[in-house]
Design a protein around this nucleic acid. Structure first.
Lengths: 160, 160
DNA sequence: CTAATACCTCAACCTTACTTGAGGTCAAGT
DNA sequence: ACTTGACCTCAAGTAAGGTTGAGGTATTAG
């Protein structure tokens, strides 16, 4: 009875995993390359996944919906135990980690929203005073490259 | 008195615009290509911007911080009047448009957050029942490619 | 007038998250 | 045995949002 703790048998193919997760085969291969799953190979060189990898990939999908990058997800998955199948407690810990980030994002978006009227809505768009530019907010940072703001932006106005 | 409605004088170089907005010169050229600003050229072929373009680009920067894509921003900027310098009322209208989207995003993130404990936190990750996968939410949709979910994902469980 | 900047275009490169295709192998059914 | 379908690797393409560099022209300060 101790034998099914680990489920070393019952390895499944990439096609099965794709069916069960809704991911494409190519995406699963890509996720392997990204370090999100680490299937073994059979004698013929084909990938064999654990059933628990389905849950792992489901977690990846959910996390993406929450707006996390694959790298952020990988870091959290690396916190899972290697020697055993993750327990409810393990997942709950990660859930909390995400919840905290979501709380921050919601708070930031709410602040942004509240500032919007005062900043754009007034028509001044004065970035000197504009709270939307406060670099202390962990702002979106979607693209690459510098996104800084200095000095008096609007000083000389059009129509002058 | 009608002469300064349009401000045909006082055109400024791309370097000046870069200084005033904090954008790089290359980014401003890129934004021109994206249709976000449309500077004229002087006799030597160099770009000359209106002072109001600084405000326009400031709006672009703020909108990006709010999480909008350049295309979404362009569409909103295209709603600005072409014949005259935008008024406070014009900016306020766009502000409202963004505010509405932000309200939706905040609401969605909040729903997600509230579901997180029930879905990941319980450790089941059963995507059959998982509200986080509800496609009716305008979910993040960051990457490209299909992101669908079908059927019973977790049915055969590890350790089973 | 000349040197130093600032500006120009075009092409290539970067990251993230994948897809698509070519060319070849493995596994399963008959 | 043979055929089909699933699988393999590697290279290139896509989209967004830019940056970097090469090679050349404009403008400006002295």
């Amino acid at each position: 009875m101790g034998s099914n703790l680990q489920t070393n048998k019952e390895r499944i193919s990439i096609g099965r995993v794709a069916e069960r997760t809704g991911l494409s085969v190519s995406a699963i291969r890509f996720y392997e390359e990204a370090g999100l799953v680490t299937p073994v190979r059979n004698a013929g060189g084909q990938r064999r996944f654990l059933r628990s990898d389905i849950r792992r990939l489901s977690f990846v999908l959910i996390s993406q919906q929450l707006g996390f990058s694959l790298e952020e997800i990988r870091q959290r998955l690396d916190g899972l135990p290697r020697g055993r199948t993750p327990t409810q407690r393990d997942w709950a810990r990660m859930s909390k980690s995400f919840r905290d980030v979501l709380d921050d994002r919601i708070a930031m978006l709410t602040r942004m929203r509240n500032r919007l009227d005062g900043c754009i809505g007034c028509g001044c768009l004065s970035l000197t005073n504009c709270a939307l530019y406060n670099p202390n907010d962990e702002a979106s940072q979607q693209g690459s490259g510098p996104r800084y703001l200095v000095g008096d932006i609007i000083a000389g106005e059009d129509g002058g």
